[in-house]
């Protein structure tokens, strides 16, 4: 309770600081609108459905790409961990591409797929996939050999070994890879939405883009806030429970 109170106090202070900066006219109101204007925009956008619609479209793109990235990344990571030949080839490629900032995929995606959903999906998948491959590979390699040996003597082999021993043992690594993948997917989707202006649906990134085109700073800031809140919620709702479960089981400190 005390922690929550302090956190609320902190954010209230930030808003107060903002309000003060606005009133002091340090910057032009066009560049720095009042908190109230931003709140007003949010209220209107929420009421006329723009915000909800844009969030839905963005989340659909994000989740589709993210899931494809994980579904593709996990088996690839297992392959690279299990066989040297895959490690030297796919593993090296994954390592290289993982270092590539995901926004760098946008020009290529635009030329390949044009202004389309496919282009955005491609960018999100590329953002997710390689982190998941690397994390799975690292996780599997870090499984203490004694777990495998113990399981072997109890009659575990092949698929049972993979699903009941190696994957669970690698779980802490895999989850942190999934979390990193999520962050990359989110970043790359925003980059894609800002650059890819298509008519198949207005996402949050596009709202942000048009806020700039219209010099509507309240819209820009409001959408940025929404994006931050979604990122926070995803962390608190999805990743935090998994991580705290892992910390409890493994006895690692959070």
């Amino acid at each position: 309770m005390k922690r929550l109170g302090l956190a609320i106090l902190f954010f209230a202070f930030l808003v107060a600081l903002w309000e003060w900066a606005f009133r002091a006219r340090i910057w032009s109101p066009v560049l720095l609108p009042a908190p109230e204007q931003v709140a007003q925009y949010l209220k209107n956008a929420a009421e006329d459905g723009t915000l909800f619609h844009a969030t839905l479209i963005t989340m659909r793109r994000l989740l589709t790409g993210y899931l494809i990235g994980i579904i593709g990344g996990l088996p690839l990571g297992l392959l690279t961990a299990r066989w040297k030949i895959f490690h030297d080839t796919i593993g090296t490629m994954a390592l290289g591409l993982q270092t590539l900032p995901s926004v760098c995929w946008v020009p290529l995606a635009l030329l390949w797929f044009g202004q389309s959903e496919a282009a955005m999906l491609f960018v999100v998948v590329m953002g997710t996939l390689w982190s998941v491959v690397i994390a799975t590979d690292t996780g599997v390699r870090n499984v203490p050999p004694i777990y495998r040996r113990a399981a072997l003597t109890m009659g575990s082999k092949r698929l049972h070994m993979w699903f009941r021993v190696i994957l669970p043992a690698a779980l802490p690594f895999i989850v942190s890879g999934m979390k990193q993948g999520w962050a990359f997917a989110w970043r790359s989707l925003m980059a894609a939405e800002i650059f890819v202006t298509i008519l198949t649906g207005f996402g949050l990134g596009q709202l942000l883009h048009y806020g700039r085109e219209l010099s509507a700073m309240d819209q820009v800031i409001a959408i940025m806030l929404v994006i931050v809140v979604i990122g926070l919620l995803a962390d608190k709702i999805f990743f935090s429970p998994i991580e705290s479960f892992l910390h409890r089981r493994w006895g690692t400190s959070p």
Partner: peptide
């Protein structure tokens, strides 16, 4: 091959932390 007729108890804990 290993088999459950002959089970091993290891020095360091080989218990599975996820269970």
């Amino acid at each position: 091959t290993p088999g459950r007729e002959r089970l091993v108890m290891f020095q360091e804990s080989a218990l599975f932390p996820w269970l």
